[in-house]
């Protein structure tokens, strides 16, 4: 009886990582657009150097939650929030936190590839140059490293000065990942990164995600359950702005605890 009540009030408590392996800690987080609630009383912990997937039906708030993690909502003046989000123990909404620095540490890749209208090289170097002057050699090194990390180097090394818009969709998405890696983030947020791509590009991006988790904490939003099952270590299921269930991916997909979760992952829900 007590267990059930606790579940309803804070379902995320089911996996409680110890603080030294927690990268992001979300506690009692709620968010509204004007009068419209989008997220309510959400609590969960994201483990370091693992892939955590957020799944759920469209409009369940999974992207909203992701954008809250690097304060992209700051631009929208209608948004109000409550609760806390901590990155490595520090409240990201604390007044002493510089939002630009937070966003450097928590990188984000969007649904549709959004390379800037400049060369491939300049795209990757964009974030670096914001951080201050740096010797050209060093920038070159980091650009090469970032492109290699995102498995794009071999395809573009001969045309670094070409426009980024000349790349294919899958290449553009990997370029955007490289661009984000170049500024040295600790967390990488991926908002349905493969939804606009063809199957082969999707596989490449998924492989990239698996490789990156050795050095990064990854949070992946996806509506594709197979994808979540393939790449993530932990999965959170959200519905109507609430966290329904959060468990290791194997457990959630093979043995969901709640009927709502089961209905969703077996496709019995509209």
């Amino acid at each position: 009886m007590t267990v059930m009540q606790e579940t309803r009030s804070s379902p995320g408590a089911f996996i409680d990582f110890s603080p030294d392996v927690t990268s992001l800690e979300i506690r009692g987080f709620g968010l509204r657009y004007g009068d419209k609630p989008a997220l309510a009383n959400l609590s969960l912990r994201v483990p370091r150097h693992r892939v955590t997937a957020f799944i759920g039906p469209s409009g369940c708030g999974k992207s909203t939650l992701l954008r809250a993690l690097n304060r992209l909502h700051d631009l929208n003046e209608d948004v109000t929030w409550e609760g806390t989000i901590r990155l490595e123990g520090q409240d990201i909404h604390a007044p002493e936190v510089a939002v630009a620095e937070l966003r450097r540490r928590v990188g984000m890749v969007f649904q549709a590839p959004n390379p800037f209208p400049m060369s491939i090289y300049d795209n990757v170097a964009f974030g670096l140059r914001l951080q201050g002057r740096m010797p050209k050699r060093r920038v070159d090194d980091i650009v090469e490293w970032a492109l290699r990390s995102s498995a794009l180097w071999d395809e573009v090394k001969d045309r670094l000065r070409a426009s980024a818009w000349s790349l294919s969709g899958g290449q553009q998405q990997r370029l955007v990942i490289a661009r984000t890696l170049a500024v040295g983030p600790e967390v990488l947020l991926l908002d349905e990164p493969a939804s606009a791509l063809d199957p082969i590009s999707t596989l490449k991006v998924e492989e990239l995600i698996r490789n990156l988790k050795s050095s990064l904490t990854l949070v992946l939003v996806t509506h594709n359950m197979q994808q979540a099952a393939r790449v993530s270590d932990y999965t959170a299921f959200l519905q109507d702005g609430e966290l329904v269930e959060y468990a290791p991916t194997d457990t959630l997909f093979t043995n969901p605890r709640l009927a709502r979760t089961e209905n969703y992952i077996t496709g019995r829900m509209a």
Partner: peptide
Amino acid sequence: MQHTPSPPPVRRHFR
């Protein structure tokens, strides 16, 4: 493999 150093705080403050 932390490749990029964290920027100096002075720079952060300036920006």
